[in-house]
Amino acid sequence: MTDTNESPPGGAPPPGGGGGAALPDNGWRKEYWKKNLRLMVVLLVVWFVVSFGAGILFVEQLNEIVIGGFPLGFWFAQQGSIYTFILLILIYALRMDKLDDHYGVSERNDDGSRS
């Protein structure tokens, strides 16, 4: 477990990669950030489609379908959207753990365990 960067006291990642290797180091940062943004956008699209789409914009059409006594649009508006929100945050947290690990920016204690 070695750090690629010698970080200054205080611990912030050195600007642009530290030392003399300013430019090459930017690659992973851009990649990491791009993947983060892509995940975020996908999850927010689902967030919008389920709550505003199924729960508000198309609620009347979906209400034609009835499952277990619930008109479907009504179910999304009062139950389904909330379950989806929880699921979205779960997926986000798990995927970000993987992404952090992959790019070596997850928070670790000195012995390498998750802090």
């Binding site: 070695t2 952090d100 390498g112």
Partner: peptide
């Protein structure tokens, strides 16, 4: 701008992908 850059990455220092 550097401050904004730094809040985007959880760890304060980057680790190499040794174990994994």
């Amino acid at each position: 701008q550097e401050m904004v850059e730094n809040i985007r990455y959880p760890a304060t220092t980057r680790r190499t992908e040794t174990a994994a």
